[in-house]
Amino acid sequence: MTRYVRDIMTGHPVTVEPLTSVTAVARVMRDRDLGAVLVTDGDELRGLVTDRDLVIRAVAEGGDPERTTVAGVCSDEEMVTVGPDDELERAVELMREHAVRRVPVVDDGRPVGIVSLGDLALERDPESALGDVSVARPDP
């Protein structure tokens, strides 16, 4: 049976605007238990920012997290996306080719979800170590 991105993606992604401060984004991630949010300008996808981006590109560089915006730290070069009707294998190929762990899902130019390496691991082998980690509750 052919599986599609829409079957496993996390829908209704959390989005922030490009001028949102790194501190504000970190709080959204903490409060919503997220590792990534999409950066949008209106309905248009501008990038993806991960918790790792915040640490490596903002904190480690010595920037002021209150004054640094996500526009300066998000991953936006060669933004890799998939559509909800793409086959899962396409998402796997793109992740492998671009060495990314998360890919925004875009429909008619608008972000509608995110598919992650953890989502794919659960789909392929729910009993795998990565599948177990992906569904584990975070430490308090």
Score class of each variant (00 low, 15 high):
residue 37 V to H: 03
residue 40 T to G: 04
residue 119 D to A: 08
residue 101 R to E: 11
residue 41 D to L: 05
residue 91 A to V: 02
residue 63 G to K: 14
residue 94 L to S: 10
residue 96 R to E: 15
residue 120 L to E: 09
residue 87 E to T: 12
residue 40 T to N: 06
residue 136 A to Y: 10
residue 94 L to C: 10
residue 98 H to S: 12
residue 96 R to P: 11
residue 128 S to E: 12
residue 114 I to T: 05
residue 138 P to I: 10
residue 37 V to C: 00
residue 95 M to F: 04
residue 79 M to I: 15
residue 115 V to S: 01
residue 73 V to Y: 10
residue 103 V to Y: 00
residue 121 A to R: 04
residue 91 A to D: 14
residue 114 I to D: 00
residue 55 V to S: 07
residue 117 L to S: 15
residue 114 I to L: 02
residue 56 I to A: 03
residue 117 L to E: 15
residue 122 L to F: 11
residue 66 E to T: 13
residue 37 V to A: 03
residue 57 R to D: 07
residue 71 A to G: 09
residue 109 G to Q: 04
residue 101 R to V: 08
residue 36 A to G: 09
residue 56 I to Q: 01
residue 49 V to K: 06
residue 67 R to K: 11
residue 78 E to P: 07
residue 139 D to R: 14
residue 75 S to W: 05
residue 124 R to T: 15
residue 62 G to Q: 04
residue 125 D to V: 10
residue 65 P to V: 06
residue 112 V to F: 04
residue 113 G to W: 01
residue 120 L to A: 07
residue 84 P to W: 04
residue 38 L to K: 02
residue 109 G to W: 01
residue 44 E to K: 02
residue 45 L to H: 08
residue 101 R to G: 11
residue 62 G to M: 09
residue 67 R to T: 14
residue 91 A to K: 04
residue 78 E to K: 14
residue 46 R to H: 05
residue 106 V to T: 05
residue 61 E to C: 09
residue 104 P to K: 02
residue 93 E to G: 05
residue 55 V to R: 00
residue 134 S to R: 00
residue 131 G to Q: 07
residue 42 G to S: 02
residue 116 S to I: 15
residue 73 V to E: 12
residue 78 E to W: 14
residue 119 D to G: 02
residue 68 T to I: 09
residue 109 G to E: 03
residue 82 V to Y: 02
residue 124 R to Q: 14
residue 100 V to T: 10
residue 83 G to M: 04
residue 98 H to T: 12
residue 70 V to K: 01
residue 104 P to Y: 00
residue 75 S to A: 11
residue 82 V to H: 03
residue 80 V to Q: 11
residue 45 L to V: 00
residue 104 P to A: 00
residue 61 E to S: 01
residue 140 P to K: 13
residue 84 P to G: 00
residue 59 V to L: 14
residue 135 V to M: 08
residue 60 A to F: 10
residue 59 V to K: 06
residue 123 E to I: 10
residue 111 P to W: 05
residue 127 E to V: 04
residue 48 L to T: 08
residue 89 E to N: 05
residue 125 D to G: 03
residue 123 E to V: 15
residue 74 C to E: 12
residue 102 R to Q: 04
residue 88 L to R: 13
residue 44 E to G: 03
residue 118 G to E: 01
residue 100 V to P: 11
residue 39 V to S: 06
residue 115 V to Q: 00
residue 59 V to P: 07
residue 49 V to P: 02
residue 104 P to Q: 03
residue 111 P to D: 08
residue 99 A to R: 14
residue 112 V to W: 02
residue 47 G to R: 04
residue 64 D to T: 01
residue 140 P to V: 08
residue 68 T to L: 15
residue 59 V to E: 07
residue 49 V to S: 11
residue 43 D to P: 13
residue 42 G to I: 02
residue 122 L to H: 10
residue 58 A to R: 05
residue 130 L to P: 07
residue 78 E to T: 09
residue 95 M to P: 13
